[in-house]
Design a protein around this nucleic acid. Structure first.
Length: 419
RNA sequence: GUGGUCGUAGCUCAGCUGGUAGAGCACUCGGUUGUGGUCCGAGAUGUCGCGGGUUCGAGCCCCGUCGAUCACCCCA
């Protein structure tokens, strides 16, 4: 048994798999950037109060999954369990809402939830998210969903679906909640289920037990209680999605875990994963900013789970066909220890010119050095002995074909760039 | 927080009804003088998760503990 090991439930990415993680994360970020979103780099921990007020004390995330501790000044600090609340806090704090609206930002980083780990669920996990704040319009709802969809398509994902619904405005929700409560009172539910319903009656729509699902088929749906304006907005979002060729399913039984969602709400689900199949989700949040003490601006955003998306990519075999390695261009081998210094200098110079290259370290025999050249994945290799240093010419060998070509050392970088 | 399964070399695992450990892959070196990917040969590596107990004797049985994993709750 090792003395030290990683804390329970954290994900770690190291070579060679880390390159796929990086590829996934960068692809997700690119989709946000190409749509005009700008970076917001925020702290990984915040005042505990922010999440209690922002995410909602009735949620499981806040009531039992937060990493909360007291710092040396006696302040209650919490490692961020999600990204939206922190973005809102920063926008309010720095008066970003005085700028042109909407504010469009993206973020990426680690998030923390003290849950029991399982496939695709970690205590520290990675998300890429975007927020568009200060505009309540179907076209921005559509844009946000389209950013996520574009990201998934860019990765080459196929086996995923998009569920959407609308939670309407506060009036729609209030009247629905009343009717739903009356309906639930007619049911014979066990205590645990009843307790869950008391916190958020919508939760029952998401229950995995078939008995509950069957009973809930007759329950009143929030979608039928939408105000005229909400319904019109939702219809417009659907129209835009359809026009863009983005397939979706209206799922009136969809339930999200965070309290702040209103209006358009959506979820991307992969069917190649286990129980934790949600690869991203988000929605509109009308009252959040005001709740946190800012102007009453509406916003919409999403969070995408980088860990789960990586898992989904692997499950779909995407990396079998896609080349994601940032390929090393050249591997330099010194024939003997006499040429070591020359090689170190040459490699350093080539790197200055932007050539991705590496060399054989230590005192390995030529065969061993060539083996590491092979494993490095470099496109070309060069062996340098006293002859090469004397003539200034080397045999530039293309590893895949095994053929080589005589090149002047001074022309190496140009030759490699040209190929 | 609850439940199932599992914990043997770097990795994947084998180890029959208890008699003090193996395979494949990977790794290092070599197969005569400066070239990798195939092939052949040689070599190194384990307090069998940890702590107790039963036994003449435990990797194998019992208890505890830690960890991993999957599922529930919930969620990215």
């Amino acid at each position: 048994m090792r003395e030290l090991s990683a804390p329970k439930g954290v994900s770690e990415y190291f070579p060679p798999r880390s390159q796929y993680f990086e590829f996934v994360r960068e692809t997700l970020i690119s989709a946000a950037k190409v749509s005009g979103y700008q970076l917001m780099e925020l702290p990984a921990f915040e005042d505990t109060e922010l999440f209690k007020r922002g995410v909602g004390e009735s949620t499981d995330v806040v009531s039992k999954e937060m990493y909360t501790f007291e710092d040396r000044g006696g302040r209650s600090i919490t490692l961020r369990p999600e990204g939206t609340a922190g973005v809102m806090r920063s926008v309010i704090e720095h008066n970003l809402d005085k700028l042109t609206l909407p504010i469009k930002v993206w973020y990426s980083g680690a998030f923390f939830r003290a849950e029991r780990p399982q496939a695709g669920r970690y205590r520290q996990f990675y998300q890429v998210g975007i927020e568009a704040i200060g505009l309540n319009d179907p076209e921005i709802d559509f844009e946000v969903i389209a950013v996520a969809d574009r990201a998934f398509k860019a990765l080459g994902l196929k086996s995923y679906r998009l569920d959407i619904t609308s939670l309407g405005d506060s009036k729609s929700r209030a009247s629905h909640r009343k009717d739903l409560q009356i309906f639930l009172d007619t049911l014979d539910l066990d205590e645990a289920t009843r307790a869950r319903a008391a916190i958020n009656p919508l939760r029952l729509f998401d229950d995995k037990r078939v008995e509950i699902q069957r009973v809930m088929e007759k329950a009143p749906l929030l979608l039928d209680y939408l105000s005229e304006e909400s319904a019109a907005n939702f219809a417009k979002v659907q129209e835009l999605l359809t026009g863009a060729g983005i397939a979706f399913t209206i799922n009136p039984r969809m339930v999200r875990g965070l309290d702040y969602y209103t209006g358009t709400t959506f979820e991307f689900v992969s069917d190649k994963l286990g129980a934790q199949s949600g690869i991203g989700g988000g929605g509109r949040y009308d009252g959040l900013m005001a709740e946190l003490g800012g102007n009453d601006l509406s916003g919409i955003g999403f969070g995408l789970g980088v860990d789960r998306i990586l898992l989904a990519c692997e499950a779909e075999g995407i990396f079998d066909s896609t080349e994601v390695k940032s390929e090393l261009e050249l591997f330099v081998v010194a024939l003997s220890s006499a040429e070591k210094n020359f090689v170190a200098g040459l490699v350093n110079e080539l790197r200055n010119k932007g050539i991705k290259c590496d060399m054989a370290y230590g005192d390995r025999a030529l065969k061993g050095a060539m083996k590491s050249a092979d494993k490095s994945g470099a496109r070309f290799s060069v062996v340098i002995g006293s002859d090469e240093i004397e003539t200034g010419k080397v045999a530039l060998k293309e590893m895949k074909t095994g053929t080589s070509k005589e090149v002047r050392i001074s022309a190496l970088s140009d030759e490699i760039k040209a190929n």
